[in-house]
Nucleic acid binder design. Structure first.
Lengths: 228, 228
DNA sequence: TTGCTCCTCACGTCACGTGAGGTGGC
DNA sequence: TTGCTCCTCACGTCACGTGAGGTGGC
């Protein structure tokens, strides 16, 4: 159909009563829908696409007394939990793949895109590979800059982000500054220096934050290292 | 048990044959395990904790001919896909919560922490709030810098990241450069200029990428705007 | 008359969790 | 003898997808 729903899905929605055919042929059993049922069908499709359970889809579209926003927020929380769980599993699984045994925990949250400018791509590539286990694939991209490496940490895509933070510092305006969670802060800190990082300060505890060290990469980008 | 496994799970693993009791009392049916079965039990627990299917757990621990690393990498890919899916769903659901209707698509993947240095925190705060709908809460953090705003987009935590990219550009080394997906690229571009952004180039199509515009924020940070 | 579509059951999915009803061991 | 533990089925989970077997419509 134009609705995007499959026939088994339409039958199922008939069975559970959230989308009844406008008319059913008594002889053949054929289900017929009217064009004005399309919005409802598409709404169901949209809500199911974000995995809202059918019972809640029913409430969302038929029960005028339910708190729609609250229902969606509750579902949002479930999805967020699931997302965190899967991210965790990825981290743990990566540990298995590298070694073959058990591994620790990590935290995380936020998202954007980040470009880091460096003086020498090969130096930078080696730096990020050595220190953070990033894996880069060389590409000549026709974006705003001629050539660059696209890279990931761990391995594939998807991991955890922290926060976008804005701080006031006239001298450093326009300077890239980002952070990594480390399984072993001391070790990563040492490795980073060995790989050519500029030392800012070694691991220390600050109230209300994970244990942190500060370095600059060989091109001068500020990097915070956080104990996971 | 010390294994961390529940009794129903132990029974299930007996049924499916991945962890047989060392001995079963014929009269009572009681299952007894030996201490040397613990490593195996814990391995199963660990692999199940990352959602490796039982059939593959069996292969992983009993089939010497299987490519263990390949099996785990294949599973990693499934988890990564799932993670991407759920992240997507969160973005879409956030759209529903704000409005109540259907919403577009976005892409995404990677994670870190990002600090952006600016000349004036209040100007920057207004800029990011106006243009990207970020919400900031003022904090005086005792991190490497005296005061800053911590902010999020959309709503809660968790969204989509793109990639860490390294490009070679001596002149721009050390400069922050990041991007946003926009529901309506033209509109966001216009809003950004109105909010004080420096124009680099307006929306245009480049092969192999989403439609993109380039601006600088009031402090000179490079920002790419991408059509979602 | 030959395809093609849609129909109606009914089973399968995946790994356990949860009773119901019953029984040895301290 | 009273609890407590573990046992054995067997059903429930969640939203459809997938046959098996059969039948109207062009």
């Amino acid at each position: 159909m134009l609705s995007g729903l499959t026939i088994p899905a339409l039958r199922h929605y008939d069975d559970v009563g959230i989308l009844l055919p406008a008319q059913v042929d008594r002889r053949t059993g054929y289900r017929y829908y009217r064009r004005d049922q399309l919005p409802r069908a598409q709404l169901i499709l949209a809500l199911r696409a974000v995995d809202l359970p059918i019972d809640e889809v029913r409430d969302a579209i038929d029960a005028p007394e339910v708190d729609l926003r609250g229902l969606l927020l509750a579902h949002r929380e479930r999805l967020a939990d699931q997302s965190a769980r899967v991210s965790q599993q990825l981290v743990v699984l990566d540990g298995f793949i590298e070694k073959g045994v058990i591994v620790p925990k990590v935290t995380g949250s936020r998202i954007v895109m980040l470009n880091v400018a460096v003086h020498d791509a090969d130096v930078a590539r080696r730096f990020y590979e050595d220190v953070f286990g990033a894996s880069f694939n060389e590409t000549t991209h026709d974006g705003p800059h001629d050539s660059h490496y696209e890279g990931t940490f761990g391995t594939w895509p998807t991991e955890n982000f922290f926060l976008l933070q804005i701080f006031e510092d006239v001298d450093r305006a326009g300077t890239a500054n980002f952070g990594f969670f480390c399984e072993d802060l001391e070790e990563t800190y040492r490795e980073s220096l060995a790989a050519g990082a500029i030392d800012v300060h070694g691991p220390k505890d600050v109230p209300g934050m994970p244990r942190v060290a500060q370095i600059k990469d060989p091109s001068g980008n500020d990097i915070g290292l956080y104990q996971a």
